[in-house]
């Protein structure tokens, strides 16, 4: 099953077919989610209208974790089975995850100002998400730090796996350390603590963000594969005909 889609050509065909569906799903889900979230759901009895930041903040935070899990998963596949597509998927996932993390941090900060009275606190959840952001940046920097792209991919894969220890820490940080950030309320023992009228737009936004991720991921993977093709074509061109620099060197 895995090997059937391992072939980049077959994958490209599949990706091209899936891409418009993903785009449509993203558009519909985000439109409904934003409509219900911003206009057709009640304000909070304590937080008032600013509770609506939740509909962007919570899905971004979910996606930050989901993207890192996907990143670590593809890195593990690429290290273990040397799967060429896994490398490409990991490299394509990292910037998306980094932006979701950034979005979660910024919206959280905007929400924190009216609710907690401060833009930022050194709370366990906030700090661990900030570390996640740095891990994304480190992954991307290491990926680009080598002249040989294969070396960069292998080194950064190891780093991504090491950084995965942070994901459970983020998930459980609100339970282990009792600080300002509230504990999990959507998924917990004894049912969700959120009223259905707010839960529904939140879940719509969650699905919308996830399909957005897959949509952009497909675009980025196709772009990466094309870039690899261009690189190998250029290399072949260079090998076949000596460039102008080489000729002038020979002449001198």
């Amino acid at each position: 099953m895995l090997h059937r889609f391992a072939n980049p050509t077959r994958f490209l065909r599949l990706a091209a077919a899936m891409q418009p569906w993903m785009a449509a799903l993203t558009g519909v889900m985000l439109a409904f989610g934003l409509y219900f979230g911003l206009f057709d759901s009640p304000g909070d009895y304590q937080q008032g209208e600013s509770v609506r930041i939740m509909y962007v903040h919570v899905p971004s935070a979910w996606m930050a974790l989901l993207c890192y899990t996907a990143l670590a998963g593809s890195c593990a596949v690429s290290l273990i089975w040397k799967h060429p597509l896994a490398d490409v998927a990991a490299r394509a996932t990292a910037p998306i995850g980094a932006w979701f993390t950034f979005l979660a941090l910024v919206t959280g900060s905007l929400w924190g100002k009216p609710m907690w009275g401060t833009w930022w606190v050194w709370d366990a959840r906030l700090t661990s998400v900030l570390i996640l952001f740095f891990l994304y940046l480190g992954y991307m920097a290491l990926d680009n730090a080598f002249d040989d792209p294969g070396r960069g991919a292998r080194a950064s894969s190891i780093l991504a796996l090491v950084g995965f220890v942070n994901v459970p820490i983020i998930k459980f940080s609100v339970d282990w350390w009792n600080t300002l950030h509230q504990p999990a309320s959507v998924i917990k023992m004894g049912g969700s603590a959120i009223h259905p009228s707010m839960l529904m737009p939140l879940l719509l936004m969650g699905v919308g963000f996830t399909s957005y991720y897959f949509w952009v991921l497909l675009i980025r993977i196709r772009g990466e594969i094309c870039a690899n093709k261009v690189r190998s074509l250029r290399l072949r061109q260079v090998h076949e005909q000596p460039s102008a620099d080489d000729l002038s060197e020979e002449a001198s």
Partner: peptide, 11 residues
């Protein structure tokens, strides 16, 4: 991990 990379120290 940074062995043989460009700008190793900062990285």
């Amino acid at each position: 991990l940074t062995l043989g990379s460009r700008r190793g120290g900062v990285l």
